[in-house]
Write a protein that binds this DNA or RNA. Structure first.
Length: 571
RNA sequence: GACCCCGUCGUCUAGUCAGGUCUAGGACACCAGGUUUUCAUCCUGGUAACACGGGUUCGAAUCCCGUCGGGGUCACCA
């Protein structure tokens, strides 16, 4: 491609975590810029004073970094204070720091007769809308009153302190958006209304700030979600009035839940609420009991949450944690926590609305950059399929070199488990732990969930009744017998290594003419409480000799305290 | 409701722009076998789609029209 001046941007509003849809928008803008050797900008659109937070800004930066997306201009990625440390010639990159620019452009538009002040309050507007609704007529803002205000009246209103907004005067012409994905989209003049460009608090709206910044930062291509399509005619009109070039737009299809609903933070609240309700129903609506279970939550907080008074994600997370409910992943951070590899997650979401063709679907970022093309972005909305993401992740993890997997796993342990596994197991055994799970885990989280028994005290895990019944008590306690036989052999095992354990256990199985399953399963249940663990030799090796013997002893007590039911044998 | 966008297996998609090579390909899921000490893998096979109706054409998944269906927008949010 010959265009060496490509400039794209990702312009999130810092009102929450980075959403998975936002991640795709960032990815495509990044890929397009990289493909053309252009510039990728991160711009923070914090013009919503009530909802924007510095924490959110930091979170978004962290998430983008984790995904491996870098930007050429914007807040610095590694800084403690992104508000002051920024890079690029066209900054600052926080809209809250660019208010003077928007003010100047708004003044210019008013001087040119392309914008005007409007003193209608939100309440008055709501009344107008309601009236139109009652009459079953489409509502459209009527500029007549506002533009007939005399300068004297306006001055008087302002002296009285009456709040006002600035509205852009839409031209009386149809507007066609040239879109690289959708083609030409024309909206009739009658469908367009004068929209607000400066709020009564003096802050610009998204429309003004977005258009002014895109021009100021020389943005050439705007890749954004299709939900913005109806905003674009407004932006095109604004650009015309301001004398700006219109960037090339490309509106991408939306991403939905498997059931077709919108992927939103509320899904998490919904799932947690469902879990909480089920628990309360089972426990006589005892909110206090649930509060105790959930630790740092108050009963009134839980009540408010269950009664849909709030969708607070922190409450949702705490409840889910206490109840063992899995929350759907919505934000980038959720996918990180669930143990997906960043490049794999990116690979998967790239496929939601884009495809390289040729039956290729597994690729890395280099390939994406090389192949990325606006013409291959689809038009139809996509549903997010976690099963497929999981399949991708499984494949990716299986291909990871041991040392890379170890690094990933250690990072996950550090971020989500307070290094509990590394500290309890020790560096040596943590490596064995990682290697034993590497070929059999689908996410980075699974080893920590399935392998929790490795780090708890020898008497602090439960024996699953079904597992005990099937592998220990069955056939007159055959499993217990195996444990009894093995106990001294293991006590003598030297050295305590997976290799040596394999020799000992296999020899025993052979001597007794037992299938390996008949030996491994009782052991597995004895040391882990369940029927699932890494290969039994690795499991015992990681656990260590002392813990293994202690757990076998504890398990044998089970045989004594829970005598098997009398069984009628065949003979 | 108005306006706008979209419509290929259950899901993501290839093929559509330049109609024939498509009795529609791949992946995930699912089903059936097989391998495996558990789990997770892995291997083999299978089920499964051009929303519907007209039109244009020798020929339509591909072009046109309509219907139906889905989605987006209609804020002093972005």
């Amino acid at each position: 491609m010959t265009n060496r001046n490509v400039v794209t941007r990702f312009a999130p509003s810092p009102t929450g975590f980075l959403h998975i849809g936002g991640a795709r928008t960032a990815l495509f803008n990044w890929a397009f810029a990289r493909k053309h050797g252009g510039t990728f900008i991160l711009r923070i659109e914090d013009t919503d004073r009530a909802r924007s937070t510095p924490e959110s800004t930091r979170g978004i930066i962290e998430d983008l970094k984790w995904l491996g997306l870098d930007w050429d201009e914007g807040p610095d990625a590694g800084t403690a204070n992104p508000y002051t440390a920024q890079t690029g010639h066209y900054g600052p990159y926080f809209q809250s720091q660019r208010l003077e620019q928007y003010r100047q452009q708004a003044v210019k538009l008013m001087q040119d007769g392309r914008a005007y002040k409007c003193f209608k309050t939100p309440e008055e507007l709501a009344v107008d809308r309601e009236e139109a609704r009652q009459l079953r007529r489409p509502y459209k803002y009527d500029r007549t009153q506002a533009i007939s205000l005399t300068p004297d009246t306006i001055t008087r209103y302002e002296r009285e302190g009456r709040p006002c907004v600035v509205r852009f005067r839409m031209p009386d012409t149809d507007i066609t958006v040239r879109d690289s994905v959708l083609g030409n989209v024309t909206v009739k003049a009658a469908e367009l209304e004068d929209f607000i460009i400066v709020k009564s608090d003096g802050y610009p709206t998204f429309h003004l700030a977005n258009v002014v910044d895109d021009a100021a930062m020389n943005v050439t291509h705007v890749l954004r979600a299709q939900e913005h399509l109806m905003n674009t005619p407004k932006h095109v009109a604004l650009q015309e009035a301001l004398g700006f070039d219109t960037p090339r737009y490309a509106h991408m299809p939306l991403i939905f839940n498997p059931d077709g609903s919108k992927m939103s933070k509320r899904d998490k609240a919904k799932a947690a609420r469902q879990g909480a309700k089920a628990y309360l129903k089972e426990h006589g609506n005892d909110t206090a009991q649930l509060a105790r279970k959930a630790g740092s939550l108050g009963a009134n907080e839980i009540e408010a949450f269950v009664n849909k008074k709030t969708d607070d994600t922190t409450i949702a997370a705490l409840l889910a944690d206490a109840l063992g409910v899995e929350l759907p992943e919505i934000d980038v951070h959720d996918f990180k926590q669930s143990g997906y590899l960043p490049e794999t997650a990116l690979n998967y979401i790239a496929l939601l609305g884009w495809s390289p063709g040729n039956n290729v679907e597994r690729f890395d970022l280099d390939f994406l950059v090389e192949q990325f093309d606006l013409g291959r972005i689809g038009k139809a909305n996509a549903r997010f399929d976690r099963a497929k993401l999981l399949a991708f992740n499984t494949e990716s993890i299986a291909k990871l070199p041991p040392e890379v997997f170890l690094k990933h796993l250690a990072a996950h342990d550090a971020e989500f488990h307070h290094r509990a596994y590394l500290e309890k197991l020790g560096k040596q055994n943590f490596t064995v732990f990682a290697e034993s799970y590497r070929p059999r885990c689908r996410t980075l989280q699974e080893p920590f969930v399935n392998g929790r028994f490795f780090i708890v005290a020898d008497d602090a895990f439960d024996y699953q009744p079904d597992a005990v019944k099937k592998n220990l008590q069955k056939d007159n306690g055959e499993g217990f017998g195996v444990l009894q036989d093995l106990r001294p052999l293991l006590a003598d095992c030297q050295p305590w290594s997976a290799a040596q354990l394999e020799i000992v256990v296999k020899q025993y199985a052979e001597d007794k003419s037992l299938g390996l399953g008949k030996v491994a399963q009782p052991l597995r249940v004895a040391v882990s409480g369940s029927t699932v663990s890494p290969p039994i030799y690795d499991t015992l090796a990681i656990l260590g000799q002392a813990a293994t013997l202690a757990r076998i002893d504890r398990c044998m007590e089970l045989a004594a305290t829970q005598p098997q039911q009398p069984q009628t044998q065949g003979h």
